[in-house]
Amino acid sequence: MNKIITAEFLATDIKRFVIEAPKIAAKRKAGQFVIVRTDQTGERIPLTIADSNIEQGTITIIVQGIGKTTKAINQLNTGDFFLDVVGPLGKPSHIENFGTAISIGGGVGAAIAFPTAVALKEAGNHTIVINGARTKDLVLLETELKEVADEVYITTDDGSYGYHGFVTQKLQELIESGTKIDFVLSIGPIPMMRAVANTTKPYGIKTVVSLNPVMVDGTGMCGGCRATIDNKTVFVCVDGPEFDAHLVDFDLLTKRNRTYNQSEKAALEKHLCNYDKVFSDALVEELVNQ
């Protein structure tokens, strides 16, 4: 059982949890993840560790409520408990002083990329952050990132805040403006990571993406998280989660991530029906419309 020290929404349906997990806090490095479970019937959900505090023995995770389980997690509040938290899993990010490094995050990935941006800065890089959101209300951690990075660019798809356009358009501009870029890390939705890979490839810029496939145990035991990198099968949980973006088979990744779409849809509908009994019609309406 791991106690939730603080729980707060960063944006609609995106919640930040600071949880008691002293061993993981002491051990974890940027790029690693935990697997959490909320209750006896719950799924095991892999989540990147977004931050940690060794003195207080806490780690931070950021959860976007998409399916039944992540929506259920986001119902948890300060003082509640996670039934299970295991980690730190996966290999740490490879961090060094590359020169100029760009951390690109999209959606909830913007928050998840935060620790890597910190680590890149600490390693001596001129650190640029590009964070993309659909709209102004979904922009994450802008203040925190500005404290850390040398340059921060916020992009919104609808132009409601910052740069109007996708993260890749901003990236392309930076490249074309002659900024010498030595390293790019990208975390976010698969289409975004693929677009970043396609943008940097012609310029030969070393680019790394953090993959988040379907997982069960997270320790190499099940092989459910397999992906193809450089035409070879890997287990993302033990061989990753970070890989050379130019070698990832994004098509396969996209298809495999759809394996349980039908089941998840059914589970979510049932979940929302159950809430119907407990919560107001308005809340159910709100959840369904998201």
Partner: peptide, 18 residues
């Protein structure tokens, strides 16, 4: 605890499990 696969084409299609 590390399942072997057969290393034949198509082993990563959805519906193929260890």
């Amino acid at each position: 605890g590390l399942p072997y696969f057969m290393n034949i084409p198509g082993e990563n299609f959805n519906g193929v499990y260890s």
